[in-house]
Design a protein around this nucleic acid. Sequence first.
RNA 1: UGGGGCGUAGCCAAGUGGUAAGGCACCAGACUUUGACUCUGGCAUCCCGCUGGUUCAAAUCCAGCCGUCCCAA
Length: 337
Amino acid sequence: MEKVLVAMSGGVDSSAAAILLLKQGYEVAGATMKLGFPETDAAVPEAKEICEKIGIKHFEFDFAGEFSENVIKPFIEEYRAGHTPNPCVFCNKYLKFGAFLKRALELGYEKIATGHYAAIEKDGGYLKIRRTEEKDQSYVLYNLNQEILEKLILPVSGMSKTQVRKICAGEGLSVAEKKDSQDICFLKNRSYSDFVGETAPGDFVDKSGSILGRHGGISKYTIGQRKGLFISAPNPLYVTDIIAAENKVVLGEEADLYTKKFEITNFNFCYPLKSDIIFKVAVRYNAKPEEATVKICDTKCEIEFSQPQRAVTLGQSAVIYENGFLQGGGIISRRNL
RNA sequence: UGGGGCGUAGCCAAGUGGUAAGGCACCAGACUUUGACUCUGGCAUCCCGCUGGUUCAAAUCCAGCCGUCCCAA
């Protein structure tokens, strides 16, 4: 009987994952990461209670230091640099599939499981993550590799949220009704500026450099943003660029948001990259993957869309799919090449 | 202090006698492990610079005033 440790967040998905594994006959235990914030650590007692109800052991891992170093710190630095980071990507890379996995193995577990919506399949000799139709979170999993995939189970793969809720309801868990989490976990009751701090106000300019108004600090904007600019114009204005060096935020029209070619760094491929084929690339969570070519150049990787895509944003992850499988991804580091 | 134009919600702006379009901004909700995008809804409490007049009825016509812009001196 394989021993599996489920990363429990106190939410519906990971709870259902644990229940499913139990039913499949695994020896299951749950563990929750303490990340050092009241908002995140509220999950610990919640997950513990769920584990008690379904009759499995529960561990508590104190990863506040790792979280602060690998998630919070880059989050702050990126925002202050005028980029838009996705902390979930780092949390998965360094915490769930880093520190958590390591600890699980140390405790004698052979595998770990999470409540991510994505499927693991064997294809062409490699373990691959396939996009799932109902709901898909493969976007945040691009930093996985073969070694990790061998030790990972994603039990809710291919299910709908409704099905997952029913599984929890079937065990009489009140978490079945719990609302989906939305914001970044550590920001539940706080504002961005509590973490990032205030960045200096500066000018909103148009693409020719004319001043359109004042912005409240570059950390408050992301490419493609329309809301919160407080500027009235004949047509909606969007943030088209953030020039950190000049503390300027460039505004333009919808049509100015499209980018064809960009560059990623810190990339990872879950399995070896095939060459000279057309991939599909998503540049934001929930963005539809679109046709593109991918070319590795040393420590960087150039991605060129067949058709320009909206709001390619520094700091966000570009995630590459090959034939429905998650090939890999990286952090967008240059745009409008 | 001669001539002309304009004054409609935070901004822009339709509407020239029949009882206030639209866009932007903003707000709310939906969606969403990124305060983004998107979608849906709301948004001038008899109100159209002010005051008075004409009319069954005016933001729309008339008069005066105030404000503002342009031209000429």
